[in-house]
Design a protein around this nucleic acid. Sequence first.
RNA 1: GCAGGGGUGGUCGAGCGGUCAAAGGCGCUAGGUUGAGGGCCUAGUGGGGUAGCCCUUCGCGGGUUCGAAUCCCGUCCCCUGCACCA
Length: 961
Amino acid sequence: MIILTDIKVEEKWQRKWQESNIFPSDPNNKKKIFVTVAYPYPSGAMHIGHGRTYTVPDVYARFKRMQGYNVLFPMAWHVTGAPVVGIAKRIKRHDPWTMDIYKNIHKVPEEEIEKFTDPNYIVEYFSTEYHDVMTRMGYTIDWRREFKTLDPHYQKFIEWQFRKLKAKGLVRIGEHPVKYCPECENPVGDHDLLEGEGVGINELTLVKFELEGEYLVAATFRPETLFAATNLWLNPDSEYIRVKIDNEIWIMAKNAYDNIFNQKKDISIESGINAQNLIGKQVKNPLTGAEHIILPAPFVDPEYGTGVVYSVPGHAPADLIALIDLKKDEKELEKYKIMEEVQSIQAIGMIKLEGYGEIPAEDMIKKLEVKNQNDPNLKEATNEIYKLEHAKGIMDKNTGEYQGLKVVDARDKIIKLLLDSKKGDILFEFAERPVICRCGTKCVVKILDDQWFLKYSDEHWKETTYQCLEGMKIIPEEVRANFKYYIGWLQDWACSRRIGLGTLLPWNKDWLIEPLSDSTIYMAYYTIAKYMKNIDPEDLNDQFFDEIFLGLKSDSENPYNISPELTKEMKDEFNYWYPLDWRLSAKDLVGNHLSFHIFHHSAIFPRNKWPRGIVVFGMGLLEGNKMSSSKGNIVMLEDAIETYGSDVIRLFLMSSAEPWQDFDWRENEVKGISKRLDRFFEFSERVEKMYGSKICLEDHKTVPNVKKPINKWMIAQVNMRIKEATEALEGFQTRKALQDSFFLFKKDIDHFFYRIEHETEDENAMSEIADVMVYVLGIWIRLMVPFVPHGCEELWEKHGGSGLVSTTEWPQYDIDLMDEKVQKGEEIVHGLSQDINEIKKVISIKPNKIHVYVAPEWKWKLFDIANKIGKPDIGKIMQEAIKQNVHDNKKEIAELAKKIGREMTKIKYIGKIDEYSTLNNSIEFLCGEADAKVIIYDKPTYDPQGKSRNAMPYKPAIFIE
RNA sequence: GCAGGGGUGGUCGAGCGGUCAAAGGCGCUAGGUUGAGGGCCUAGUGGGGUAGCCCUUCGCGGGUUCGAAUCCCGUCCCCUGCACCA
């Protein structure tokens, strides 16, 4: 047995491809295809998930190349961003968790890890490794165009792009809340956190309750409930302070100050204030003007929000419970002398909610059986009401002009009113806590006030983006709806960063360009990247890029220091490759990267350079579970190559799921694929044996002229498989393509071998069969090249194919060879054999002779009539049959006409077939299968039980004795 | 909550008005081949049946149609995203 999945064999071909220089692509007079896949962020080793991502474009590129296209498939490294900076820091600190992952999961040798304290080294190390593994996977990448996003040339390109956007008014400055570590004095990403990964930032409304010229400031998610406020809560055991802000004095918990300090300008602590002295005092509701009493509440968290809470017992279960508890707490009431006031407080209802009474909080407490303030169900009760009122609540009585509005709408209006009238403000707060930096400090939400934004909210920009999307192919098509949604939903995107690797914002060098924002139109850069080695980055200016990418001539004499010839060459090259034909990326990037890609192209390039299509990838699973490098649930691509060889991996990844579906790496099934691939390789040996001498595929380029139906059938099947596989690959359906070109193809061959088994002794028959098999082999190898390129090269060479099979032409199918009647004939033979078997099984006798009667002429005529009529209309069929006088016996016609509707659809009628000779041609096979003598009758000359009347087109009658 | 996608036989997964008891893989059963247990090939894998057929199934309930896994309505459940991050 030959083992073509041997790594040595694979490496040999990788070398040959490189030597023959076939995959670097330059413009020529052929039609072009330009396909790119999201460049990787090399912060770790490649795993099988990456394997899928990069194999799909490679398969497509190989396929298109064989079809005669000039294909460009480039690759680069996205090294800009924050994560590696965090990793480097942790390595420096010898953080055991990080060290473990890099040593044991990513398999980085000890001496290399030491150098990982430099983030630049990390990306350097892994991009080299990626390059190496990609080569070992047999990818047909044009490596002359490889670059990193930190290359000075690329940075010039990014600067050009940003100045361009700014000039178009698509960049603005503003403020923006971020997670921030006061100790490190830096914004923090998730990778920098000890605790609180993935925690969101919520926006709360601050409501100012006036108290003697100063303000108690409460933070709330639900400012619309101000109408039902009854009192304020302060925690008497916490420290409170008076804060000066914009000539106002705000009163809040001391612990809340750290957070708010980072969000407001001109803010300072004026003095402390004793909360106990405030209890019992009255404040004024800024919305209603009503007076509310300040009450004590130990449950108020001084760190959350402002440590000041206003109470809405009608709609907040916690407030209601607290109020009930307080009413019972005579000691406390005595202490603050608020007995009378508290006892008179009644919950107020203001939101109508179906299924709930006037006071929903009360109903909810009963429903969930909340006993007291410490009841764990209390939280759920609060959430439940919030959800329900948010979704279905209608503003009711006590809400003045807002009555009848949906809660959500009323809330927006009220927030706006409070802000406009300076009776309220905004506060950002973590959705969950704690959020702790790796340095151990509690993080806060900080507002960066000179943050730069890409204005994705711009209506005009959105409009052109929609137009761009409209002209694009999206695979799978269902994702188009997602794109539409995201384009509409995207707000301004903070595109500047303080930490990470990246390109400086050209007009403000305090900022780095955010890494998703520097990867939107870089596909254009690939077209000229190979020239950059010989160009000084300082010579690249905006006039240069304007000319290359936009064809804009500068007015000045010598706008840049690059020769006109070279400029022209680059410009021509860009215009040859662009627009981009396909962009491939994972589905979690639909809402950002892929949408940005469309946004930016539509903003910068003219219509004829807008991208043409997107393919979205699914995720990868490992034995049914999510892959995760931090949990060690991962298979590294390099290890898989060592174990199986890259052809097996490619074949498995492409056949187990379509690109946009989630694939599942199951060791068992990978092994199964490996075995099947061996079978494919062995097939050629079998053919050679049958052929009798060494095959020279080069001499068998034409379709053999065959006589036997079964040989014709084989050729028909092959052509059908080529057609299906080709069409599938056009739409990136790698799984379907393989279903036809590999699995079903194999099934056809098995069937064919099975059918011709009894002819192996017949030399004449074998000669025709061998010709067919050599033809099949030549086709099969070529159909498999995109998927298993190494093994196919080996086979191709071994069996006398000329040149590299990777550059051979893709098999063409001939529609005339896909003879329906030949295929139907084989179906009839096979079907008859199965019918005989079924009858044998049911009547359980050992037959001596089997008599087979084909359908008489008139039945075929009747089928023809029915076929013409189309619909199962018995009356019409009868009428026509009688008119044409197809048969004397009208009763029999009627009987058949009744059944015909059903029969027709069932058998997929394609016209008359000479069943008598078809079956006789396969008589040996039929006898063998039935293990009895089979006699085919044209006319029922011997039919003791009258079975011949059962004969129908495509379904001969059977009599067993 | 909002948006998108989905529920198919032991399992993964095609199908998306008639060719559907429903492709293909894996698993399982039987037979063949063979160096007996591996591999490969053939057949079977919802139920029933002394003639190639009949009955029941594609989350659940209803409807449209000569005909529905496929279309419509309702309902339950599951997955993904909701951002400043690659």
